[in-house]
Design a protein around this nucleic acid. Structure first.
Lengths: 252, 252
DNA sequence: TTACAAAACTGGTCTGACCAGTTGGCAATC
DNA sequence: GATTGCCAACTGGTCAGACCAGTTTTGTAA
């Protein structure tokens, strides 16, 4: 079989498995050639293939980097139908959280089970940033932390699905941060939950990680629901400047 | 700018402008190198890029050919990046099943909890069809049954996510059906699982429905893994058959 | 300490060689 | 004449080593 194909396959697999994260620099062509025991020409051909697929980007003098959008999503940035739906029907927020509860739980479970040393390092880094940032002004660290865990799950499908919900996630996370953080006690609870998730993953306790992560999402969801009913939520404002306060159907 | 990029750009233009029609053979690498006044290595890198983009196909000893699917209408088949990834990396199947286990479980849970009379009717209809169809010849009823349950969850996000995985689901369901059904005892087990899921949802027992649905997916996953290890799986065959242009078979 | 230039990276390109499938034609054979 | 079989001439696949061109590091001189 064609060696170049083999190489590009292996590299892609590596990226998909999370061995190489988006934005991350890949080994130099000469290193790859040496390590994989092939000529540099082959490496270059394989890289060009990945380049054509949008998996990596190459910059002269600097190196090759894993593209931001891992599986080659062309639909980046674009408002997905779901996003539109979401904007039109705030109720969807809870549906989203409902799904996230499962997915984040599973991600945490798998992360605790499969995370490599590098993964753990990334998670730790994200967690540190999360602790040191003022959540009121920046919701990114929160998202990055969750993202790091998801990637440590080494399940490309899971990564892809959650990535597809990225825009929505950002919205919800921001919304939750905006709503919840002003309340001292909630901020503390969330902070504690993050800590426990972090510890469980680091300690390699899948069941615990899953349970806590799910509880975390559930907590956020419940809290927002409560706040919204009190009429104090700023969710609508932050999510969409002009939207119809829509009250959904009965769902027992 | 990079010459290789320039070349691949020009070649692509050539193809798009109709200078080269689909199926048509491209000039040999050596010819291209001579005519365009660059080294053959550059030509090869450019070709690999086009290859990665699916613009051309290359066959050892024969040459490079313009791919049947010309860029522009390539999205017809709606082969998502994930689908490509999947066909390229069969292992992803298990990653997918891993996610499905959660999602289907949740869907069953919510369905048992929220299904309206209409939902129950639809589910019943799908279940009947499932029972009366020979699973060997048609995997659709299987998918329809699961689909009906998902929709009864009344969670648009869940529906959307699973819908996004529809192509993959069809593949896996087909693969599983094709692999599992020939084995009498497995077919019976799966049939029994379907029945229990159906009953739990109809009876409005969320926890039970979830548990059984998850066990169902898990069972399928485990079974396929076992089969594959025995080397008797036809998964790759069936997957390739429906994903490779070589075989314009049924793929609806 | 700062500034700057050399060195040591990185990718980009070229050359020429050889290996490995594919094909077509030519010659020996039936 | 038709068939077989083989070799030459394609094709792409891989390799080695060289050199050019950006980028970053580093060490030294100001």
């Amino acid at each position: 079989m064609a060696i170049a194909q083999e190489i590009s396959y292996r590299l892609e697999r590596l990226i998909l498995d999370g061995g190489l994260a988006p934005e991350q620099k890949m080994p130099s062509e000469r290193q790859l050639a040496t390590r994989l025991g092939v000529s540099r020409a082959i490496i270059r051909e394989a890289l060009h293939e990945l380049q054509g697929r949008g998996v990596i980007e190459t910059r002269h003098g600097k190196g090759s980097f894993v593209a931001r959008i891992v599986p080659g999503n062309e639909n980046e940035g674009e408002d997905s139908p779901l996003l539109q739906m979401f904007t039109g029907h705030p109720r969807t927020l809870y549906d989203l959280l409902e799904v996230r509860e499962q997915l984040e739980g599973q991600a945490a479970y798998l992360a605790a089970q499969r995370a490599t040393a590098l993964d753990l390092h990334r998670i730790t880094k994200a967690y540190s940033a999360l602790e040191q940032t003022d959540p009121l002004t920046n919701a990114r660290p929160d998202h990055s932390f969750h993202q790091a865990i998801v990637e440590a799950s080494h399940n490309p499908v899971l990564v892809h699905v959650l990535n597809g919900l990225k825009n929505l996630m950002l919205l919800t996370v921001e919304a939750s941060v905006a709503n919840l953080n002003p309340r001292e006690e909630m901020r503390n609870k969330i902070s504690r939950q993050h800590k426990r998730i972090y510890q469980a993953v680091m300690a390699g306790k899948p069941e615990a990680a899953k349970r806590i992560a799910m509880a975390h999402v559930r907590f956020v969801s419940d809290a927002m629901r409560t706040i919204e009913q009190q009429g104090t939520a700023i969710i609508r404002v932050s999510l969409h400047a002009s939207a119809t306060p829509d009250n959904p159907s009965q769902r027992t």
